[in-house]
Amino acid sequence: MRALLLAALLLTTPAVAAPRVSLIKACETPKEIVFQGGGYGGISGIDHEPRSDRWAFISDDKSEHGPSHFFLGRLDVRPGHPCGPVLETMVPLRREDGTTFPDRKDGAEAADGESIRFDPLSRDLVWSTEGDFDHGYPPSVRRMKADGTPLERTVVPDSLTFHAGGLTGARKNATVEGLTWSVDGWSMWLSMEWPLAQDGPIPSVAEGGLVRLTRLDRAGRVLAQYAYRIDPVQEASPVGVNDNGISEILTLDDHRLLVLERSGVKRADGRYGYHVRLYLADLAKAQDVAKIDSLATLPVRTVEKRLLLNFDRLGIRIDNLEAMAWGPRLKDGARTLVLASDDNYDANQINQILVLRFAP
């Protein structure tokens, strides 16, 4: 009897239980905050540096509301405390010659900061910019000091950048949205927002699409690449404007990532609504597709994904969540997961910060 009971337990118990994610608090930062000449808006990437307990917040402002910039500051993740943020320094983003990025209307390369990370092996920061399809500036990852001094620019691999005519390669304004270091810091993950042009259509209400997750070494060389299937668009738009894509990724361990899918829908009144889902992506059994030119031409073993949280079910307003980072641990040992929204400097959107409890 004992043997039969043990066998039944083994059959009904999953080998690896899914982490549990719950909301600790939601905060809304006032609009039109200007700090040291930079507007707190358009927040597309955040990260936490445990040694100093400082946070970085990057804006995707293309020098239209002050210089393109990021902030350094503090954030209180404890339950029952305001979650700010408390801004300490505004740091302009700079090109390799030391000059600040110009307004995109000038035709020169503008900054389109989408993700920012502290380098776990140094005190530097890296940040991704989506590039500019119209003016021929490719997506890239840039390294800088904490004071904004530029150190290095790495253009993304050729398969992920823009190609003449747009029939292959990255789609306009849908390139490198997500960036995260591996656990050991010796490699980096990049995620595309939408499928490459040759990998199939962008998601619709009827079907999703295949997006590439790419692992690079510290020199920017491709180590591996995997196909991740994003969901269909979550809601039809009465004016035909909606999408779904990856807005950020975050390393959990050597073969698992957290993936934030964000679906935006333009409604009849012109305002946008957002549907956001958090997935656990397991790459252990996925096929390396780095040498496959088109994912639309043959079947591939995609990344396994498991839904951790549907933000629609939190019972609160959810805005354009684009930023995600690990925060300090709570007293009970659980991790905190912090998300922030990009308000697009739109009066109808909010600057939102969510603090989640992440328990394995």
Rank of each mutant, 00 (worst) to 15 (best):
R95A: 11
A206Y: 11
S63C: 02
F162A: 01
I316Q: 14
A146D: 07
Q349W: 06
A227R: 01
A174C: 13
D60V: 02
D346E: 14
V300Q: 05
L125T: 08
P299L: 07
Q234C: 13
G113N: 09
Y40H: 07
V91W: 03
P85T: 00
L75G: 04
A110T: 00
V211P: 03
E130Y: 13
A281G: 06
L87Y: 02
P203H: 09
P150F: 06
V126Q: 11
G209T: 11
W181R: 13
P157K: 10
D112M: 00
I46D: 06
S122A: 15
G208L: 09
T154R: 15
H135R: 15
V276P: 06
A108L: 13
T99Y: 02
I316A: 11
D253E: 05
T13E: 07
V34F: 09
L308N: 12
A347P: 11
P157F: 09
D288R: 08
A3I: 12
V222Q: 06
M90E: 10
H163G: 01
L4E: 13
A284P: 00
V233L: 14
L72F: 14
W194T: 05
R306L: 10
S52Q: 08
Y40F: 15
E207Q: 15
V77E: 05
Q287T: 08
P360Q: 09
Y279T: 00
I230K: 04
R123M: 14
K305T: 13
L250Y: 03
V241G: 06
R74W: 03
G327K: 02
K25C: 07
L72N: 01
T29N: 05
I116C: 05
R313A: 15
W186N: 15
G42M: 12
D112H: 08
P238Y: 11
D332S: 02
D97W: 05
F70D: 01
H275T: 07
F162L: 07
G38S: 13
